[in-house]
C-alpha cells in the first residue's frame, strides 16, 4: 500500500465505503418495502401470540396438551403454527395431534372455524378466531 499514491488510496477507500453503503442501503430498501407493502407480515407472529396468549394460564391446561391446526395437509405450515403456538403458550408442552386429555384447535383460517373432528372429544371452551379447547370425553 505504501507504493500507491494518496489519490489512489482515497479512491480505494471510497470504493470500500460505497460498497458498504450500498450493502446497507439494500437492507434499508428491502425492509422499507416490506413495511410499506406487506405490513401484515410484521404482525403475523404478534397477532398469533396475542390470540393464543388468551389461553395461557387457563385451568385446567397444564403439562402436555394436544395441538391441531387447520394446516394439517401442509407440514411446513403446520409446524410453523405449532412453533408459534408453543411460543405463545409456554410453559405448556404442545404436541401435534389429539392423543391428549385436552386439545387446542387453532382453526382461524377455516371458513367455519372448525378443523378438528373427533367423536371422543367435546368442546370445552371457545374463543375468537376459530380457537377452541377440546376435552376428551369420559368413557
Amino acid at each position: 500500500m505504501a507504493r500507491l499514491t494518496l489519490r489512489i488510496k482515497i479512491v480505494v477507500f471510497c470504493l470500500i465505503g460505497l460498497f458498504a453503503l450500498y450493502s446497507n442501503l439494500r437492507i434499508i430498501n428491502k425492509e422499507a418495502d416490506r413495511l410499506r407493502f406487506h405490513p401484515e407480515e410484521r404482525m403475523q407472529e404478534e397477532t398469533k401470540d396475542q390470540s393464543l396468549g388468551k389461553l395461557r394460564g387457563l385451568a385446567p391446561l397444564n403439562g402436555v396438551v394436544g395441538y391441531v391446526s387447520e394446516q394439517q395437509s401442509d407440514m411446513v405450515q403446520e409446524n410453523y403454527d405449532l412453533f408459534l403456538a408453543e411460543y405463545a403458550l409456554c410453559p405448556l408442552i404442545l404436541v401435534k395431534g389429539a392423543k391428549r386429555p385436552f386439545v387446542i384447535a387453532d382453526c382461524g383460517r377455516s371458513a367455519d372455524g372448525i378443523c378438528f373432528f373427533d367423536t371422543d372429544y367435546a368442546v370445552f371452551k371457545s374463543f375468537d378466531h376459530g380457537l377452541r379447547i377440546y376435552r376428551q370425553k369420559q368413557k
Partner: peptide, 22 residues
C-alpha cells in the same frame, strides 16, 4: 466514511428489528 456507514447500518438494523419484533 465510517460514520456514514455506521448510520446506514443502524437504520437498517432498526428497520429489520421493527419488521420482526420477535
Amino acid at each position: 466514511g465510517f460514520l456514514v456507514v455506521l448510520i446506514s447500518a443502524l437504520v437498517g438494523f432498526v428497520l429489520l428489528s421493527y419488521n420482526r419484533p420477535h
